[in-house]
């Protein structure tokens, strides 16, 4: 039966409809599929590597060199193995967030989107919510794989599952949070840099080498100012903040508490989201 005008009159654009629309945008293109495959592949590689590392740390610590002391803790390895795939996974979900926005400009679908929902803040909000849902969905799948593989591994090492330890549980939960926050970042970056190529390349490069570059810069600065305290400020770099949050700052000298990283990350996400929304509201769609 054909759709009546009364039915059209009743139609209202609700939050659920907008989220369904954003999910449909993703499901009806091929890109997400490649991201899913990439993430799965990377997670399996990371899992294999982390388990190999843990195996040697438990069974042949001498191989890891004289400083291996800190790396023989089963808790450290449990956190590491149960969050395998995080490094590139976060980048992938950030890229998905970026594409959710830049695709609209690249394919000029922004016109149809804003004609349907002229309140642009509402559009960005529904993209943010959808991005978080997708980021979480990916994180849940990855974590499920990590849990299955990790539990088997720790059993073979006669360590139980290690899942009863709070630091391990915390690492797993914060890993999920990190996936959500980085997709928000992605959406925000997309609204700030609408050129698809520029946005994806900038974000990927900053993510992949940003931490290292910042580390070098902070060491130089600290030597120059002759101050150790400067190193604490590394946490203002988003990827470092993310590491501080999820790993409790392993390997970063003078690392602050995990929640400092979480707050910094949240701060960035809010600022980027607000600035991006304000810019999008003013932008001419032509």
């Amino acid at each position: 039966m054909s759709v009546s005008t009364a039915e059209l009159d009743r139609a209202r654009a609700g939050a659920l409809g907008l989220i369904r629309s954003e999910l449909l945008k993703i499901r009806t293109t091929n890109a997400w599929w490649w991201f899913a495959l990439g993430m799965l592949g990377w997670t399996l590689i990371a899992l294999a590597f982390n388990m190999w590392f843990a195996y040697f740390a438990f069974n042949d610590p001498g191989m890891l060199g004289p400083e291996a002391g800190g790396f023989t803790s089963p808790e450290y390895h449990a956190s590491n193995i149960y969050t395998s795939g995080q490094f590139l996974g976060l980048m992938f979900v950030m890229l998905i967030g970026i594409l959710m926005v830049t695709n609209e400009f690249f394919h000029q679908t922004a016109t149809a989107t804003f004609l349907t929902t002229p309140r642009r803040t509402v559009v960005i909000m529904s993209k943010l919510v959808t991005a978080v849902l997708i980021g979480m969905a990916f994180a849940v799948v990855i974590t499920a794989i990590d849990l299955a593989a990790g539990a088997v591994f720790f059993h073979t090492q006669d360590l139980g599952t290690m899942l009863g330890e709070w630091p391990v549980q915390r690492a797993i939960l914060l890993n999920l949070v990190a996936f959500g926050v980085w997709t928000i970042f992605g959406v925000a970056i997309g609204t700030l840099i609408t050129n698809q190529l520029a946005a994806t390349i900038t974000a990927a490069v900053l993510y992949l080498v940003g931490t290292q570059l910042a580390q070098v810069a902070f060491f130089v600065l600290s030597a120059w100012l002759d101050s150790e305290a400067v190193l604490h400020w590394q946490v203002i770099v988003p990827s470092t903040a993310s590491q501080v949050m999820t790993l409790g700052g392993e390997g970063i000298p003078g690392s602050p508490e995990w929640w400092v990283g979480a707050l910094v990350l949240l701060g960035y996400a809010v600022v980027a989201g607000v600035v991006g929304t304000l810019i999008t509201r003013k932008r001419d769609i032509s």
């Binding site: 629309s21 349907t116 929902t117």
Partner: peptide
Amino acid sequence: NHLRVICAAAGFP
């Protein structure tokens, strides 16, 4: 699918 995306956002059947 292009039209489905719009229909979903507008709340049309």
